[in-house]
Design a protein around this nucleic acid. Structure first.
Lengths: 213, 213
DNA sequence: TAGATTGTTAATCGATTAACAATC
DNA sequence: TAGATTGTTAATCGATTAACAATC
């Protein structure tokens, strides 16, 4: 009998918890001390019921009538999302999108530590971009053998996505954030997060054309 | 009695139809003539049942035993997704991400025609980037009064997202693709597609940390 | 206290999966 | 024909919403 449930939170709930945290940080910056599930719901664009449902995954700290302390709830959500340690990550592809991501890492604080980038373009290889060393892709296995990475970020031409993914997995990388439109074939146990920019463009074009909304 | 249902396709199904089309185009490039729902399912990473369910939204052209003609199904999906006309779109923010998107538009064929960009950085204003004119944001209303845009793409600092959105809506833009982490407050009838890069990073960090997958 | 809000359970809704008759 | 696959309906599953007792 397992007394403690593993309590794996599903991706949608994780996404909303991330949004609640942003909203809470905004409230904090405005020196607002207390808030209610209804307020968070409006700011996050969901229902109050869903906010409370989601917060059941968090060590809750609300009180009837008084709602939540903004500071306490922020801490509770952050603890739940586990931002203690920064995980080492590598970037595959240092073209315009890859460089935009490097820029993003400088200005924001993702819970990832981007340690290096890999490219095929020889003009970029063996230089630094935004303080990150850029290696030739042929050095990938050699590199990972020395310094394992927990996360790989794909920002390369879609034709290369599957091949590189296979190599990453063979080298022990288990989590891949894929910005290419390629659907990756991977074995069980590999987590893939898709951020499909091309799909976003195609989908907004579809609804704009339909005028359905 | 309405005889023809409007048949608005939900965003998830639209997303999968877009994926099926890519998969079909790949098959076409490999000179494969016929395919089955099971094949498409494997390549798209979904179940065969879901493929057939989704294809019910498309003028179906499959035959039992023989499956689908790759060419015919591609055409049917494309017709369903409605790629006839390119819709005029504008870009808000021409920083690293905005420039990566401009680059993307050059190399791919989204169903959008990116006609201009808006910036506050005076070094970029009144120049061209990737063949697109860059105007100062203060010219936004003036511009839209002359040349209406069906879609606006937000790639600017998150602090500006809500203000610019309000101005876009006031100027008649009804479809917004939002690359910032800001949740936008908009009136009914406005369609927003979120592509939250920061969330992608935070979520993969969460699952990589958990090791849940 | 009375009123309002939380945490949590039950009900509903929608999306995915399973099943199967039709059929090539 | 026999076998396999489609299109479509029914069943299941999961996620969201509603309801409500507990309570500050």
């Amino acid at each position: 009998m397992v007394s403690q449930a593993p309590k794996v939170i599903n991706p949608r709930t994780v996404g909303r918890l991330i949004i609640y945290r942003r909203v809470l940080e905004k409230l904090q910056s405005e020196n607002i001390e207390r808030t209610f599930s209804r307020d968070l719901a409006v700011l996050a664009g969901v229902s109050a019921s869903l906010v409370r449902q989601d917060l059941m995954n968090v060590a809750t700290c609300g009180t009837p009538q008084n709602g939540y302390s903004v500071v306490e709830l922020t801490q509770a959500v952050t603890k739940c999302l586990g931002t203690t340690k920064k995980l080492p990550a590598i970037l595959l592809g240092a073209g315009p999108l890859g460089q935009a991501l490097l820029h993003h890492f400088q200005n924001n604080q993702p819970q990832l530590d981007l340690v290096s980038a890999f490219e095929t373009n020889l003009e970029l290889v063996d230089h630094e971009l935004h303080g990150i060393p850029v290696f030739h892709v042929s050095k990938l296995e050699e590199y990972l053998a020395q310094t394992p990475a927990q996360v790989a970020i794909l920002a390369l031409p879609k034709e290369l996505a599957q091949t590189i993914t296979d190599r990453l997995i063979a080298a022990g990388v288990c989590n891949i954030l894929n910005f290419t439109p390629t659907r990756l074939q991977v074995p069980a146990g590999i987590f893939i997060e898709y951020n499909d920019i091309q799909m976003s463009l195609e989908r907004i074009a579809f609804y704009a054309d339909e005028g359905a909304y």
